[in-house]
Amino acid sequence: MHLQMGPIQILLMQLLADGSEQEITGLTTGGWAMMLGSIAMVTALLIFCIVRIFSESKPSEHHHAPLDIDTGDHL
């Protein structure tokens, strides 16, 4: 087995070394704003889409084929 000094080993050394750890005590005001803002945005978009989909008339599902054919007959 050839043990090379690849990225895996370098990372392993980094993991086990006493690196310069960041001291973070909690969320700052900016952190709260970005976290809640991002979550609110994607959740609102998802809810908007779900509401639009389920507010559509039900019969549209499974009932395509006959309606898709435009025979050109307009009586």
Binding site: Q22, I24, T25, G26, L27, T28, G30, G31, W32, M34, M35
Partner: peptide, 13 residues
């Protein structure tokens, strides 16, 4: 967990 969330979400503008 607040410290972990802070690490992830505190902005570095």
């Amino acid at each position: 967990i607040g410290s972990g969330l802070g690490f992830m979400w505190n902005p570095k503008w």
